[in-house]
Design a protein around this nucleic acid. Structure first.
Lengths: 187, 187, 187, 187
DNA sequence: AATGAATGAGTCTTCATTCAT
DNA sequence: GATGAATGAAGACTCATTCAT
């Protein structure tokens, strides 16, 4: 494992443990097992490690979608998509939090968009297939719809797993969400 | 104006100018015109001012909804709601950013939920009225639907105004979103 | 109970809990149930409460000596004295510590001497009685001997109960001390 | 001279000049000629320098004992010991005070015991020699006796030089003390 | 006499950054 | 490239003290 990767892994762990603000470069290098000065040979600052981290998170989502969301039936597919995003968000709950937080502090917004693009493409592709099957209605701008769908699912996942008040019933909410998306999309 | 309010106002200004991380308590008290120690009589730390700020932001949204989103026609109402959230997010773009960033750093998640509750109630109320008019379909859990709607609109607003890549057409996206919500909700 | 006494009691508790350095006037007034400013009506500073505290400690020792150290046999009396100082030091272990610490920080040394005087007098008196009985040898300066005796017993008590390393056998050490004093004093 | 030693020396000077409470880390580093942050590489806080200081004080006593207290006659040896402790306490009066004050504020009591051990050993060794010469009586626990002797001498020195009321005649008191110890120890 | 909110000078402490090795 | 001791600027935070009520 090269130094850059070592630092990224150590940064993830440290951010998860302490939060971005309280994490120090000293913590990171200690965990990475390298010298204080070495960090600066690879990253100019703490926050510049964020894009690499976001990249990793999205790869997990995409891999999981490829594996688990492949039904040709739109009703089923929507449920599978919701399940994947919910599962990943739940499993990487803290990692998600820090990505959202980290991005709001960086100037890497543009990179963030680029990182998300493949996910929007994936959805758009599925929508097109659904339209060909006659299961999905026509859209003026299917890229927008893709973004809306992802936004809808992710905001629910956030409410449930990041800002969870423990009063919300996960399954009940999920069923409403799936129903909501089905009606909004289907022909 | 009491000291707590003074501090909150000053904190908003300071956070907007410098960002949360770079803002110092020293900056805030200078702007508030109070002594360094006085800050600590009201808030234990910089981030503990965030809930008050979030409160204020939500009040703006609620006031704006009351004023501008009062159609009895569900199609129109949805567009009005989207407009309000879009307008407020656009206008208070930086304030929104800092709230999202700030919350991810605090442990005030529970408070955050309490702050948002009146907004969910507002939507739920409108949904019930729509159901009585026969314009809106029945839901198992209308609170969930309210949260989904807000999440959907806000995530779009975020994508457009906070993480905007400048490639998205605002109006086109908005129209898709309105359409999306109408279909998802209506009978 | 008047305010001054209230403050003294509260100061003792606070010093015991937090140590003198870390104890704040704010802590003391909170415990005393009075206002911040009220403290300054009775004491100019935190350390100026110390003499009152020392006074209280010595009263306990003197009362205990009067009650428990009254044998007319010098051998027995010495053991009783040692027992009393040991018992009091053990029981008021923390109070003792803070008195020793507090005195080194105050400028109330003179007061401290005055406070201890009755104790030296008590010992001197007993020595004179012993000399009349023919049990005690003659001294050039019996006040000095009184101070030496007290110093010897107290330093042992400190070693045992304040700076105790848990390796010293209390009884064995006490027996040596009693024997040591008996031989040093007796005819 | 390494940094740790530099800091210790500077701390001694600073404590002597200002007292422990009023001495600041800033004072210490200025005197040591190092940066503020460097202090924290060697000591976690101001009071954690105390054991090093105590160490140094004891070395002075031991060196002085080795040099000046080496008579084979017990009567003479006792007087030499008393002289040494009196001289050192008088000369390092303020240093002594601050050690007593500092230790009472730290949690380094165990270290304190370890620091004193060589002194107790020194005395014990002399007692054994005296027993072999037939000048000293037998003890059940000679370690206890060593501690009692040191305690007796030091408490006298404290009374005379630290908490001195200026009414005590040093020589007269010393003579009584020497006599007291001779009788208590000798066969 | 009593209050307690407000003060702000003064410290402690952290930590990104450097640079001689 | 790698190191890590040293730096010192920068901020957080405390708390004795004041004073209008």
């Amino acid at each position: 494992m090269d130094k850059k990767e070592k630092i990224t892994k150590a940064a993830i762990e440290t951010f998860l443990e302490k939060g971005i603000t309280k994490a120090t470069i000293s913590d990171i290098v200690k965990k990475a097992g390298i010298a204080q000065g070495t960090f600066y040979l690879y990253f100019p600052s703490k926050l510049d490690v964020m894009p690499s981290i976001a990249q990793e998170m999205l790869q997990v989502i995409l891999a999981s979608l490829d594996e688990k969301a492949n039904s040709t039936d739109m009703d089923e597919l929507i449920e599978q998509m919701v399940d994947v995003v919910f599962d990943v968000t739940r499993e990487y709950r803290e990692l998600s939090k820090l990505i959202y937080a980290g991005l709001a502090q960086t100037t890497h917004i543009q990179e963030w968009e680029n990182i998300y693009d493949p996910l929007y493409d994936w959805i758009e592709d599925k929508l097109h297939q659904g339209q060909e099957n006659g299961q999905v209605r026509k859209f003026k701008n299917s890229k927008s719809i893709a973004k809306i769908i992802i936004g809808t699912i992710e905001s629910s996942a956030e409410q449930l797993f990041l800002y969870n008040d423990n009063h919300m019933q996960v399954n009940e909410h999920k069923n409403e969400l799936v129903q909501f998306l089905r009606i909004a999309i289907k022909k």
